[in-house]
């Protein structure tokens, strides 16, 4: 009887899962793009850029994601910016993740041996060329494991956007639980669906790591 709830509502779950996936992928993309900028900004030689990036990271890392979602969705309209709930949700999760990704990227850049930048600069490459062609290609490879963590955390944290009425996986679960009052069945199933997504992420990232591994560099695994 309890399992009927699942089978009878597969379409509803499916839509919720797709939305969770959509939110997560968009937020990862926003977080990555902004994360690279902020990560580079954190080590910039230009003080104002460094201050802005550091302020951004500290502010978004130091306050709850749920509150950030509320600020964007409920708060921005009072300064004249009304955003659709889905856009608000994606933006909040993405901007929040950018702070964490910035730190991961900064760490990655700083773990590339110092001699790499020196060699690039000494042969006449500009700072930007050196970053783009020498440092970042190595840093991006180094950060795949911590990035995997961040992506997995983001997928799970996307459940918080249910608070502003986005019909993603968690809200679907809450709704079905309210309807049937079978919390154990419903939430275990929801948990399993999240797990499938995070486990797939972990596997995909492992593949990416192997594909981009540099022969003879770092641990052979």
């Amino acid at each position: 009887m309890a399992l009927d709830i699942i089978t009878n509502n597969l379409g509803f779950f499916w839509k919720g899962a797709l939305l969770t996936l959509e939110i997560s992928l968009c937020a990862i993309a926003i977080g990555f793009a902004l994360g690279i900028l902020m990560g580079l900004g954190r080590i910039s030689r230009i003080l104002p850029i460094r201050l802005i990036s550091t302020g951004y990271v500290e502010a978004l890392r130091g306050t709850p994601l749920l509150i950030q979602i509320f600020i964007i969705y409920f708060g921005l309209p009072s300064v004249g910016l009304v955003l659709d709930p889905l856009v608000s949700g994606i933006l909040a999760v993405g901007l929040n993740s950018a702070a964490y990704q910035a730190e991961i990227i900064r760490g990655g850049i700083q773990s590339v041996p110092k001699g790499q930048l020196e060699a690039a600069r000494s042969i006449g490459m500009t700072y930007t060329q050196s970053m783009r062609h020498v440092i970042l290609p190595q840093a991006l490879r180094l950060i795949i494991p911590p990035m995997t963590n961040e992506f997995i955390i983001l997928i799970k944290d996307s459940s918080l956007v249910s608070a502003i009425g986005i019909w993603e996986l968690t809200l679907v679960g809450k709704e079905l639980n309210a309807k049937y009052f079978e919390p154990f069945t419903v939430f275990i199933f929801i948990a399993i669906v999240y797990f499938i997504m995070t486990y797939a992420t972990s596997k995909i990232m492992r593949r990416v790591e192997k594909k981009f591994r540099i022969p003879g560099y770092g641990a052979e695994a």
């Binding site: 041996p113 001699g115 790499q116 020196e118 060699a119 690039a120 020498v134 190595q138 540099i214 560099y217």
Partner: peptide
């Protein structure tokens, strides 16, 4: 040109 003690070839 400069040649370094630790070679500093681009590792990737």
């Amino acid at each position: 040109a400069m040649v370094f003690q630790s070679f500093n070839l681009f590792l990737h």
